[in-house]
């Protein structure tokens, strides 16, 4: 893998997404593309976002480097981290030009995605079933409520004992948290559906199966997707906890390993990478939700018609 190529690809991807959104906006306001980009870059919204980052980085620089406060002075400064991150020849072996960096990202992404998909595949049907059938709810809800508060880390020993190898153990721990979030949000979604939607469907002759497909599922969709966004985030944070304990690769492992080896800039690089990937994965879930729920989008933003 040619590292320069990867860097170029990343920058191109970010620019392409940005440009595409600008184009959409330009079309919406009937402006030319250039004017729209200029407006965005000088807009209040964008400047405030930029200011937020600036304050954060300034705080970091001042505490760690400028005043070198006790305890803080052990940490690397922003510039140091950025240079290490972008260095073709990194002092601690991890930067955007090293193969290992992407290997860690790949491992973590693979685990988080697997756990998230498993949680969705099992959690959504379970939640729908719990909301749809009183009897099933009574069976399962107390059990779910009892197991749910157990923190993911408490499962690690059991997972390692029972499951073959570290890999399934880490995925299992990640899966658990995402699973409960998805299940409970789906259940909440079914319970939130207005009774009149059921009555109307029954009135038109719908049986239980049709109710499930045509009322329960679409009606619970907004809550399901809120749940999936939370579950994606939850998957990431329990993944990192799992990786710190039982893994040979992955961003959680990288952070913990760098701590043991006193390679502090790598910790920061790992954390920032986690932030970016976590944000991107939630954004993906959100945009899929928007596509699937066009009706809700219209409900929330502007109906416009009257008469």
């Amino acid at each position: 893998m040619n590292p320069y190529f990867v860097l170029g690809l990343l920058v191109a991807a970010i620019l392409a997404v940005g440009a595409w959104q600008q184009k959409k906006k330009a079309a919406l306001y009937e402006l030319s593309w250039g004017v729209q980009i200029f407006k965005t870059l000088t807009g209040r919204h964008f400047l405030l976002q930029l200011a937020g980052f600036a304050v954060f980085i300034a705080f970091w620089q001042l505490t760690v480097k400028t005043f070198s406060l006790p305890w803080f002075n052990r940490l690397p400064g922003p510039w140091e981290c950025l240079m290490e991150w972008l260095s073709p020849d990194p002092a601690y072996g991890i930067s955007i030009y090293t193969e290992d960096y992407y290997k860690h990202i790949l491992f973590s992404t693979y685990r988080a995605t697997t756990a998230f998909l498993l949680a969705t595949l099992l959690g959504v049907p379970l939640g729908l079933l719990m909301g749809w059938s009183r009897k099933f709810y009574q069976y399962s809800f107390p059990l779910v409520e009892l197991i749910r508060p157990i923190p993911p880390l408490a499962w690690v020993p059991l997972a390692i004992l029972v499951l073959p190898g570290d890999e399934p153990a880490v995925i299992f721990v990640t899966f658990l948290v995402a699973f409960f979030v998805t299940t409970l949000n789906t259940l909440l979604g079914v319970e939130s559906i207005d009774e009149s939607y059921f009555r109307a469907a029954r009135c038109l002759g719908a049986d239980k199966q049709r109710l499930l497909l045509d009322v329960v599922l679409p009606g619970a969709m907004p809550f399901i997707f809120t749940g999936l966004q939370i579950s994606m985030g939850a998957a990431w944070f329990s993944l990192v906890a799992g990786e710190m304990i039982a893994a040979q690769f992955g961003l959680g492992f990288l952070i913990w390993d760098s701590y043991s080896l006193i390679q502090y800039p790598v910790i920061i690089i790992g954390m920032i990478t986690l932030g970016i990937i976590g944000w991107a994965s939630s954004a993906v879930v959100r945009s899929i939700g928007r596509k699937l729920m066009a009706w809700r989008e219209r409900e929330l933003y502007g109906s416009g018609q009257s008469g």
Binding site: D194, S196, Y197, R199, A200, A201, C203, L204, D214, V215, P218, G219, M221, M293, W295, R296, E299
Partner: peptide, 13 residues
């Protein structure tokens, strides 16, 4: 067929 007090059109259709 009953038509209710509150609107019961399914918002997702």
């Amino acid at each position: 067929i009953m038509v209710f007090q509150e609107t019961a059109l399914w918002p997702w259709m």
